[in-house]
Write a protein that binds this DNA or RNA. Structure first.
Lengths: 186, 186
DNA sequence: GTTCTTCATGTGACGTTGTCATATGAACGA
DNA sequence: TCGTTCATATGACAACGTCACATGAAGAAC
């Protein structure tokens, strides 16, 4: 790690990792450029050597989260021993689990500024394509069905995380809603 | 408007109105306490005479948006000439239209900090109850069905507003998804 | 091997933000 | 008429994102 490009790449990695950790641990307001720099072992101005601004650093965090989900879907698609219905359920459950385990990163993934980062746009597009591939094994016209499944699961996760989906009020849970959704749509 | 309580109430109204307008016009980053004070005709410190902090001011904005939706549902419920299915469709369409016409206010409504404001909590609870009332005319167990309808519509609106639901990718539109949702769930 | 260039990084500075302490002045009760 | 109360104005402060500039080492040119 003496070469200049290696050192720069390592710093960039450390910055994205630090931002990801801070986001998961303390939410968006914990992700300040000063805190990111401190955790990555560099100064507060170092990120500007790798990203135009803070928004693009967060875009890199979102891109990586999308890529992780895409990798999971890849394994799911590659496993030909799974029946199509099981594959679909696991794909939707996986998205839900990310939303529960990493709520702040999940919210960032579904936030708008993804448009600015070409890499993030492709990571999202890839994941959507993979999901459509899984749905295509069950539906003739996978677009609308896939879209309704993904938007609905996203709505369940979003309202769960924001406290708008309480069992006392709705007499149900996110898990039950997911099952109901699959039964009626897929 | 010479009495002290009247003047204070008028200022509070002007502050909430100013914050709402700034949010609708320029998004969350446009809502600074200085800008709110300037538009309301008071100083930047005036909000602290009416709200503990900025978050509670935004909570008042969210509460009012929820109340407006609740008033719309009230009219819908009172109109007994409408068939139940039509009532449900109008309720869901109305929510969708708010999400499209006032995306920033809509995002605020479904953000977490509602918990801090008792008034906002009740405004949300009232709207949910009204929606469940409408669903109860069509389903025996309105809880899960109502929850799935509301979360799904919210997911459609959220992904539409964040640019994750493009017709090119999914070969469908939010309106078509809403129709499909009603046909399969309600 | 020496010199020049490049570029990631550190540091000081600036404007903006939310927030608090304090001052002020007008509306109320006595 | 005199205190009291309280909404509002103002000055100040720390934290933030961002920029200009300095620095120092890696790589290229000779």
């Amino acid at each position: 790690m003496v070469s200049r490009v290696e050192s720069a790449a390592a710093t960039r990695r450390a910055l994205v990792d630090a931002a990801t950790e801070l986001l998961d641990e303390g939410g968006p307001e914990a992700v300040t450029l000063r805190a990111v720099g401190a955790r990555a072992g560099v100064s507060r101005g170092a990120p500007y050597g790798h990203f135009p601004d803070k928004e693009h650093l967060l875009g890199a965090v979102a891109e990586e989260s999308w890529t992780i989900i895409g990798d999971g879907l890849d394994k799911l698609i590659a496993d030909r021993s799974l029946p199509p219905a099981e594959r679909l359920e696991r794909a939707l459950t996986g998205l839900m689990e990310v939303g529960r385990r990493r709520p702040h990163a999940y919210a960032l993934m579904f936030a708008a500024p993804v448009d600015q980062n070409p890499g993030a746009v492709e990571a999202v597009s890839r994941t959507h394509d993979q999901f459509l591939t899984i749905v295509a094994e069950l539906a003739d016209d996978p677009g609308p069905i896939g879209a309704l499944l993904m938007t609905s699961v996203h709505g369940i996760v979003a309202m769960e995380n924001s406290g708008h989906l309480t069992p006392e009020k709705w007499n149900t849970t996110g898990d039950a809603l997911l099952k109901l959704l699959i039964a009626r749509i897929a």
